[in-house]
Amino acid sequence: MYKIMLADDEGVALDALRIMITTHFHEMEENIDIRIAQNSGQLSDIYQKYHPDILFLNIQMAGLHGIFSIRELHAFYENCLFIVVSYSRKTDYKREGFNMGIRDYLTKPLKREKVISSLSLAFRELNYHKKHQIQEQLNKESFDTVIPVIENGFISELLFPEQLHQNLSLYTSLLDIHAPYGWIMALKFSQITAHGTMCNPIGSIVQLQGQISYFRTIIKAFFPSAIIGPVLANRIFILIPSNSMPLSESEAAFRQKRSMDMETQLHRKLNLRFKIGLGEAQPMMNLAQSLKEAHEAVEQ
């Protein structure tokens, strides 16, 4: 749907412009929605509520102040393309105007071929941007799908250090990791009995897999740089990149507090009992040692 707005205080000019558009683009009638403004007050009110894709604007309409009025409209909603209409051929602000959405200048009396040409170019630009936005969204969705797979692969290879040595630079590049060190967090989870004890690890795996996207969101809310591994039995290992080794007392205290708060949030939101074990910071090439420490800590 193309949202087109026509703003002019000359009724005859408005009618003529609307007829030009509807007759030439009659095959697109269902995809074109036209709104009319006959004074500056209507222009401001409709523009702010309607958010047009294209605005034919009589810049000499009473109550407007030239380029300053366009600047105000553009500041409120910057995705509109302006086609400026006036009796004057002066375009002193042409270069500046492009950055404010002005795409063409038409002089009165309006000629049909000029109007159609200008509007066709505006449609073309809108289509380009819409396709670009759709592609960006598809790329983002694809990226969001691929990243967990890469993270799973990275953590899985910690169990096989010789493979990690071969692929470390690839993983750090794909995951945009620049820190030279890291530490591992081990999470052990299970369902809860009426007495609050951990039980039924198999059932808890099924339960967590059904909420894995939400689980990842909670983890990254507390540790934004976290690299989250796959579910291995009822355990998950998570890498937190670090710029320090060993961690300072304040850093160690901070990660302990964040881990405890995260554990509470996971339990509250997912209705599973979690236990956390933390390994010491290690060079990226020696993360297997931190994983071993985290695993031992969570099993105690």
Rank of each mutant, 00 (worst) to 15 (best):
L106S: 04
V12Q: 15
L170H: 12
L170P: 09
E78C: 06
E299F: 06
M28Y: 15
E162A: 12
K131Y: 04
D53N: 09
Q163P: 02
I4C: 08
M28F: 14
Q191N: 15
K220R: 15
Y77R: 03
M1Y: 15
S250H: 07
G153D: 01
Y50S: 08
I236C: 11
L81W: 15
G229E: 06
E29Y: 13
Q282G: 00
R124D: 13
K292M: 00
L232M: 08
S225L: 05
A186F: 06
V85S: 00
Y128D: 10
Q300D: 05
N286Y: 09
L208M: 03
P109Y: 06
T145G: 02
S117V: 12
D92I: 11
F189A: 08
G229N: 05
A122E: 09
H195P: 10
D53E: 08
S248N: 06
V298N: 03
M285H: 08
Q207R: 02
I227H: 06
R71P: 02
L73N: 13
L138K: 05
N243W: 13
S169G: 10
S259V: 10
Q38L: 02
L55A: 11
I177T: 02
P283R: 08
I184E: 11
I240E: 04
P148G: 04
M20W: 12
P224C: 02
K108M: 01
A194K: 15
F237L: 11
R255P: 01
L239F: 07
F160Q: 06
A186C: 09
R258S: 11
M262A: 07
L121H: 00
M245P: 01
I192M: 12
A252D: 06
A252K: 02
L187W: 13
N127P: 11
K108A: 03
E72C: 10
F274K: 06
M262V: 15
K90Q: 14
I150L: 07
K108T: 01
S213R: 09
A252W: 00
L159A: 05
